[in-house]
Design a binder for these strands. Sequence first.
RNA 1: CGGGUAUUGGCGCAGCUUGGUAGCGCGCUCGGCUUGGGACCGAGAGGGCGCAGGUUCGAAUCCUGCAUACCCGACCA
Length: 577
Amino acid sequence: MLLRMSTLLLKTLREEPADAEVPSHRLLLRAGFIRRAAPGGYTWLPLGKLVLDRVTDVVREEMAAAGGQEVSFPALLPREPYETTGRWTEYGDDIFTLQDRRGADHLLAPTHEEMFALLVQDLTSSYRDFPLLLFQVQTKFRDEARPRGGLLRGREFLMKDAYSFDLSEAGLTEAYGRMRLAYQRIFERLGLTHTIVSAVSGAMGGSASEEFLAAAEVGEDTFVGCTACDYAANTEAVVTPAPAGLPAAAPDLEVHDTPDTPTIASLVEFANARALGGRTDWTAADTLKNVVVTVHHPGGKDELLAIGVPGDREVDLKRLNAVLAPATATLFDDFESRPDLVKGYIGPQGIKIRYRADPRVAPGTAWLTGANEPGRHATNVVAGRDFTPDDTIEAADVRAGDPCPSCGSGALTIRRGIEIGHIFQLGRRYTDAFAVDVLGADGKPVRPTMGCYGIGVSRAVAAIAEQHHDERGLIWPASVAPADVHIVAAGRDGQVEAALQLGATLARAGVRVLVDDRPNVSAGVKFTDAELIGIPRSVVVGRRLAEGYAELRDRRDGTRQELPLVDIAGVITTEVG
RNA sequence: CGGGUAUUGGCGCAGCUUGGUAGCGCGCUCGGCUUGGGACCGAGAGGGCGCAGGUUCGAAUCCUGCAUACCCGACCA
């Protein structure tokens, strides 16, 4: 490959685009890899397309190595299959739907579980056809409420989705493990530093689930790690350890007048000022905060739910919604309609709606909490004695320093990452929905179980840019760079010709070459553009050409070395391998 | 979907308070000069100010409504 910048469709931007915030978005725009074409939709320019294709190639190679077979479905699909599995309504507003000229409903697929299950139903009939691993690289559509960060969250994006079909749990587990390894290899080859975290499987349904998160400050996913062990999990998946040991028996419940104390802060201040219960060392953690939410079920029914968490914690709506999925929750605020719920003074004793408590509110623990009357609170309210929650719930926020649920000795740390891959064992949700059965060895029908494995390919390009750049521009890993070498003809006097000649030699040897042969562009501009574009290795054909020398530069560490021009092709060909 | 900010040539911005028919830098075109770190000189092309109404002799500037984008939050792979 030999690309000449004199004819390349490329325009680098000297100034920062006003509406790009995150580094990957800014740099990909400035370096001329992408252009915004629609809200949440980007055009791949020649340099960007080269990177995207190289990333896709890595993914394809590893999928094939893991035994995957590539297929490709339409992105435009009819309603029926998604109606059958319930996702037409469950996915709700996030699906792009449209009607054809006859008024029939269609959708632009957000993922393709239905189609893969139907394809397997169509083309298999015997246990001999299994196991099966299929994948595709396809444009997906989601009507994101808020596209952001350029390629990080678009409404149209490139995704690799793979699906395994097995007839036994052991087979599924094996396929899952194989894909997990393939993913690690892929992200390693892409130069993406990542962490595998336990996750919840979201709208797709399913059980065992792990996310691959690329470490990045701009990442939308918060996850936790442990200071002592290798535990890592999405905050939604963090399980709160119940306090160890039974607390001492508390005295009887006592109700106190606590006027004007509708918040935890005001309550603690009041309690200490008046030595409530003889104590002056009350903290927010001694109080029990009860938050009322409205739970919206997909069917359309609403239900009130009260959630009890220690007063020093907030209810984390992300965690709560993960627990309640597919139902969703919003904060309840229409207290006028419910006189039994006294805002600011709610207590779990005798509450008339469903009540679920944080695991820290374990049986035997005593709390300072609302007395369900305006201006009154109660002390020594003991879980299991004065009230019994309907259930526990993981809704309290997770904080750095919380004890690790895995080893118990370490403390949790909080980090941010970009979700670049998600794997999970789907089970039979989709094969059940379509009654996908094949004949087993014993002559009886067997129903395949599915695994689902996704990689955001276009998002991965952004993630790579996030992890590989400096103040001057992008620095692509060699595995995905738009070219292996960037040859800069610094000036005149035959330098352009020499650069093109070197480029041609390298291209014949199978090296991907970008030559800056632009006439009437100063060397300074060319150097700056080369650093912005970020090809890891460059050759400057310039002032020492007359002596037969050129300069080899390393974009990452900035080192330069002068080499005889006649040796350069050999050196580079060897390095590129 | 809630809150905030913004919308003026390809990009980045000024002008709006105090209405008089649009300007700067970069980029682009042509000529000259220059050629190892985002040159210089000269001559040009290109917008009627997000959209729709309204006020006014006159609106980028004032009023009303709408749209879009970005940021924060909600939601989400």
